[in-house]
């Protein structure tokens, strides 16, 4: 219930109009959206039950390793119902394969469509989507953990919530199936991070400071 209540309203993209180059415009718009999504994500994380009981160092570590996974749950969730094969980054930023390819994001497109198809086939509920997002953050396997016991409690609390929810729906296999989707989510997020790091290294687009900082933690 708490996760449903604290789920932020979807952001809208601010269409960049500083260039006539369509692909560059797409990238600039996408990176601006991503940076604002990150700001919202950090505020959201603080409201997950148990997160604020972690040390500041562990809060930082989890966000630094799990931010892209958590954000991609949202993209895959929004893209489930999309007509055709679009990726819905925002209600007003829907990219098809050709647009992604032109922007140098063909790899990301393919990975995200795979993830979206998986969730669509599972017919993910809103409760499952918000819990999966929190689980992705809690389970992000940050390499240095300050207080493993608190982290374990945080993870157990989310796992228990998911189990209780599925038990209430008499779905005994759902929890396991959802957790089994985590490797694909991790893999997709890794490919997304690589795509944005590539854009940064090639200096294709100027990245906002927070996005850069979070990518830097992944480099």
């Amino acid at each position: 219930s708490q996760l449903l209540l604290t789920e932020p309203a979807p952001l809208a993209a601010n269409q960049d109009d500083s260039t006539n180059d369509g692909s560059l415009r797409t990238l600039l718009t996408l990176c601006d959206l991503l940076n604002r999504e990150l700001l919202v994500l950090i505020g959201w994380a603080k409201q997950i039950p148990g997160f604020s009981g972690l040390s500041l160092v562990d809060q930082m570590s989890l966000l630094q390793s799990g931010w892209m996974e958590a954000l991609l749950v949202g993209v895959a969730w929004r893209s489930q119902g999309a007509a055709g094969e679009e990726l819905v980054f925002a209600g007003n930023l829907r990219l098809d394969e050709a647009q992604c390819r032109a922007a140098g994001l063909a790899d990301l497109y393919e990975a995200l469509r795979h993830l979206t198809a998986k969730y669509k086939a599972m017919n993910l509920s809103p409760e499952e989507a918000v819990t999966l997002k929190a689980v992705a953050l809690a389970n992000s396997d940050a390499d240095q953990v300050d207080c493993p016991d608190s982290l374990q409690r945080f993870q157990d609390g989310l796992h228990e919530a998911l189990q209780e929810y599925e038990a209430s729906r008499r779905e005994q296999h759902r929890t396991g199936r959802l957790l089994m989707s985590l490797p694909l989510l991790r893999q997709t997020a890794d490919r997304a991070v690589q795509a944005f790091l590539r854009l940064h290294r090639r200096r294709c687009v100027p990245l906002h400071k927070l996005l850069l900082e979070m990518l830097d933690a992944k480099a």
Binding site: G43, K46, L56, M60, D216
Partner: peptide, 15 residues
């Protein structure tokens, strides 16, 4: 931590 100062600041903000 110095390298990740925006994240650090955002987490320390009360809201």
């Amino acid at each position: 931590k110095e390298k990740h100062k925006i994240l650090h600041q955002l987490l320390q903000n009360s809201t």
